[in-house]
Amino acid sequence: MRIAVLTDIHGNVLALEAVLHDLKQRGGAELTVNLGDSVSGPLWPRETMERLEALALPTVRGNHDRRVAVDPANDEMWASDAYAQERLTVAQRDALFAQPLTLEIAPGVIAFHARPDHDEKYLADTVVDGQLVRAPIAAIQRRLRNLDPAYRIVLCGHSHRGELIRLPDGPVIFNPGSIGCPAYDDETPPAHVSEQGSPHARYGIVTLGETGNPDRFEAIAVDYDHEAAAHQAEQAGRPEWAHALRTGFMPR
């Protein structure tokens, strides 16, 4: 069974379309799962939401999906969430909030946005010198201590950093990286940045092993018209987003 793993689209419908086209060129997948944070960002939230509604993918709720859905529009609301909220219908916001925190998408495979018990805390990451990096294995194991040991594969997003980690006596964690937002900064203490290092749209394919064959994990980076996305961010008054979309890094 082939599972395509999409996450952290952040309203970048151009990147999403490029990923869907690339997946089709590779023969498609029997199942495609969306790990959340679908629309938040100064790009095309309504168009992205409409595309995803047409696809009707199994989807988990991300932290920004929750914020777009339920946070009041005020001066304290994060700018990307406010931009998306203003452009979605009430029904679309309700649909975002109704998405589950976790999904078992196949026997032994669980999907969630950040952690199985929280949509905003990092699973495989920590902050070192203001940069998001891989957390110590012991810390990751503690964060999954309540996970059912029957799960052999964990699919997650949130950090926008691609990761493939096999925990000792535990599951394989797979984060393919972000489709639509290759870098961001977060002022939540400790303040930090996450950077994929290139403007490519990222997604993954997991092929579940059968009859003794091992599971296979593919992390894929797809080129697309990131300059058009950067221009859209500039038009929305977000030059830091434009820089991230062009380079995969935050402005220094």
Score class of each variant (00 low, 15 high):
A191N: 04
P239T: 06
V60L: 11
A135Q: 07
H192P: 07
S38A: 11
W44K: 00
T126R: 13
T59H: 02
A191L: 03
F249C: 07
R238G: 00
L132Y: 08
W78D: 13
I205N: 03
L208E: 04
D22Q: 09
V60Y: 06
A79P: 00
N213K: 11
R143T: 12
A229Q: 04
A244L: 07
M1W: 01
L31I: 12
V5S: 08
E104A: 14
P42L: 12
L52P: 06
Y151P: 03
L43P: 00
W44R: 05
E30L: 02
Y203A: 03
L57G: 08
A233V: 05
Q196W: 02
Y151S: 07
L6S: 11
S194G: 15
T48W: 09
A233Y: 05
P199V: 07
T207M: 03
H231D: 14
E104F: 03
T126L: 08
Q99H: 09
D129C: 07
F249I: 00
T59D: 05
A4Y: 05
R246D: 05
A82P: 00
T126C: 15
A91H: 09
L57E: 04
G212H: 02
V33K: 10
S40N: 15
P116W: 13
H158K: 05
V154R: 12
H231L: 12
V70Y: 00
V5L: 07
E86M: 13
R51G: 02
H160D: 13
A228G: 02
G237T: 07
D75P: 01
L208V: 15
P136Q: 10
G197W: 09
A242R: 11
L57Q: 04
A56K: 13
G108I: 08
A84R: 02
R216P: 00
L155M: 09
A15K: 10
G130Y: 09
P251A: 11
V90R: 15
Q25T: 15
I9G: 03
G177R: 09
G11W: 06
R67A: 14
G27Y: 10
D37E: 05
H160V: 05
Q92T: 03
M77T: 04
I205Y: 05
P199G: 07
S38R: 13
I173D: 07
V133N: 10
R66I: 02
E47P: 12
Q141D: 08
D37I: 08
T32E: 06
V127E: 11
R246A: 12
M49T: 01
F97K: 05
P107T: 06
G157P: 10
A106R: 15
V222G: 08
L52V: 02
D186N: 15
R93V: 00
G212L: 11
V206M: 12
E210Y: 01
G11T: 08
P176G: 10
L6C: 12
N12G: 08
D125F: 01
R115A: 10
D94K: 13
I205P: 09
S80T: 11
E210C: 02
T102P: 09
H226A: 06
N34M: 12
N213G: 05
P168H: 12
R2M: 08
L23F: 09
R166D: 14
I110L: 14
S38K: 03
L20C: 08
R87Q: 14
L43G: 00
R66G: 00
A56P: 01
H192R: 15
G204T: 12
R161T: 07
